[in-house]
Write a protein that binds this DNA or RNA. Structure first.
Ligand SMILES: [Zn+2]
Ligand SMILES: [Zn+2]
Length: 343
DNA sequence: AAGAACGTGAGA
DNA sequence: TCTCACGTTCTT
């Protein structure tokens, strides 16, 4: 069965080693589909779906945002390919990930603060996020888990995504082992399927249960924020409203939290007013924010120790903008694109 | 201008 | 106290 599926999960190897996952699902977690994913392969499959969807979303966004600017819709595609190519072969063989990035920490841990719209709602839903790879927690990486982490958690989604839609020749594709032979490497048209799982692999003969998609989408909510669909909608609405009356690029940041009508995000780098320049927070709804997986190869991931920066593929679109740039908010594709997943 | 390094706020 | 990551400064 699994031979026809172009995805191998860490759980597909038969648990003979009997290592217990460090991830113990909290009873209160709002992730019914993700609970005990190692027992039910279908649930694990939905987790994979979620990851693929994340990549697809990001890819789609990048295409819309940077189609004109970059030769490749993936801003770092060329770089990643260049960086990763010599690394991936060893990644499949060695017991340790080829990059020095602390992926156990990055993947197994809850994402940090996100702009839950309310000033008083402080990331209550955060603990629901990261349903995938939760067994990789802390810094105690079991040796047997390092390989799945490197080869599956990152390679698999990246492979499926990069092997299509990207101008990578068959010879250059470092993940062709994971590419279904039936899919031509240059099927770039898939990126245009808005609202569908454009980056999804055919999964062999395994058709996609619509219910799984819907539930996964609904419960994935605003990505790491773990909010439900309605929460996302509210947040998006709030963002728009906030943007209207404040005219700032706070993206729903807790302006009121500071009692600062200007939203404190106008402080830029040289707003000499001495106002409390609060850190902005990720919006939680844009495509990068919705990503859960650190690429592990970008400069931020590789340079995490000194860089102190989030993965470039996860950097919030709003935070990338200068605090003053407000006009780009409406078409900023983050919220809009998020909505497209629901319709 | 872009990237790297660093300081430090924020949350767990 | 520790980790994450935003904002600033420095470097290339
Ligand atoms: Zn990265
Ligand atoms: Zn965002």
């Amino acid at each position: 069965m699994s031979s026809s599926v172009c995805m191998e999960t860490p759980h597909a190897h038969g648990h003979t080693h009997g290592h217990t996952h460090n991830y113990n699902p909290t009873p209160g977690r709002d992730f019914p589909l993700q609970i005990d994913s190692c027992v039910n392969p279908v649930l694990d499959y939905s987790a994979q779906m979620e990851r693929y969807r994340s990549f697809a979303t990001f890819y789609k966004n990048s295409t819309a945002a940077a189609a004109a600017a970059a030769a490749t819709p993936f801003p770092q595609t060329a770089k990643i390919a260049r960086i990763a190519t010599p690394l991936f072969p060893s990644a499949r063989l060695s017991a340790m990930p080829p990059w020095p990035c602390d992926n156990a920490m990055l993947w197994g841990r809850k994402p940090t603060a996100v702009n839950v719209n309310g000033p008083h709602t402080h990331r209550t839903g955060m603990s629901r996020a990261e349903p995938v790879n939760m067994h990789m927690s802390g810094k105690h990486i079991p040796q047997d888990s390092a390989l799945p982490m490197g080869a599956d958690n990152f390679l698999s989604p990246l492979a499926a995504e990069q092997c299509r839609g990207l101008p990578v020749t068959g010879a250059e594709c470092m993940n062709r082992l994971k590419c279904p032979p039936s899919v031509p490497p240059g099927g770039a048209g898939e990126a245009d399927r808005s609202g569908t799982f454009g980056g999804m692999p055919p999964l062999g003969g395994l058709s996609l249960p619509p219910g799984v998609i819907v539930m996964t989408t609904l419960h994935s909510g605003a990505g790491s924020s773990g909010v439900t669909m309605s929460d996302s909608a509210f947040q998006i609405a709030n963002v728009a409203a906030d943007c209207q009356h404040s005219g700032s690029s706070c993206s729903g940041s807790p302006a009121a939290l500071n009692g600062n009508a200007n939203g404190s995000c106008s402080s830029g780098s040289s707003n000499g007013s001495g106002a409390a320049k609060r850190k902005r927070k990720r919006c939680g709804v844009c495509a990068p924010c919705r990503r859960r997986i650190n690429c592990g190869v970008c400069s931020s991931c590789r340079n995490r120790k000194t860089g102190h920066q989030i993965c470039k593929f996860r950097k919030c679109e709003e935070l990338k903008k200068k605090p003053g740039s407000t006009m780009e908010r409406a078409p900023s594709a983050g919220a809009a694109d998020t909505f497209r997943w629901f319709f």
